[in-house]
Amino acid sequence: MQDDRTLSTARTLPFSPEAIYAAFASGSVLASWWGPDGFTNSFDTFDFVPGGKWLFTMHGPDGKNYANTSYFAALEPAVRIVIRHDCAPYFTLTVGLSPVEGGTLLTWEQAFDDAETAHAVKAIVGSANEQNLDRLTRALGRA
């Protein structure tokens, strides 16, 4: 944890910032990799513009469905994606993309609205975010 409410990870991916940004910008590509291992997604609304809504359901490997309401708070092509998760647990995800030798340094900062929630989900979210990045890497490798 970076502070009492922000969970962070970073990874260098062997892809350009443009390719990674495109994996967020395409609803069909994003649906193929978003979430931890075993999850699938159904997107109801995907408006990839600043302020655009993203309404979707994550289908868990346990058969449960998890409705999500988000919006794209800020989008800077090939630089930064800010997603506001507007249902419990409330958080803002900032994905940074910086070109480095051999690819892109991707930073993933999930700032929860309160420290209590951040600490309650820390054990689950940390490994889930790493799985999410693994899935992103595999999706980009297939492209």
Rank of each mutant, 00 (worst) to 15 (best):
L7W: 10
Q2K: 15
W108M: 05
W54V: 04
L136E: 03
F46L: 03
T45Y: 10
L140Y: 02
M1R: 06
V125E: 10
K53N: 11
L30V: 01
G102K: 12
L140Q: 03
P50I: 05
L106Y: 02
T137Q: 13
T94C: 08
E109A: 15
I20F: 07
G102V: 12
G52A: 07
T117F: 05
Y71S: 13
E116N: 11
V29Q: 11
W33H: 00
W34I: 06
W108P: 00
L106T: 11
M1L: 13
L30R: 14
A74W: 00
S26K: 14
A115Y: 02
C87E: 12
N41R: 01
A22Y: 04
R11V: 04
R84Q: 08
G38L: 03
V49W: 00
H85T: 02
L97D: 03
D86F: 09
D3K: 10
G141K: 04
I81F: 08
T107K: 05
N65G: 13
T69S: 14
V49C: 04
N129F: 03
L140E: 04
T9C: 14
L97N: 09
E18I: 02
N68G: 08
F112Y: 15
R5K: 15
D47M: 06
L75F: 07
D134T: 09
L97S: 06
F46V: 04
L105Y: 03
P36C: 01
T9G: 13
W34K: 04
D86E: 14
R80T: 04
A67D: 13
R138E: 08
V125Q: 12
T9Q: 15
G141F: 01
E101K: 12
T40I: 05
E76M: 03
W33K: 02
A19S: 13
G126L: 10
S16N: 05
L13E: 12
R80S: 14
D44I: 01
L140C: 03
D113E: 15
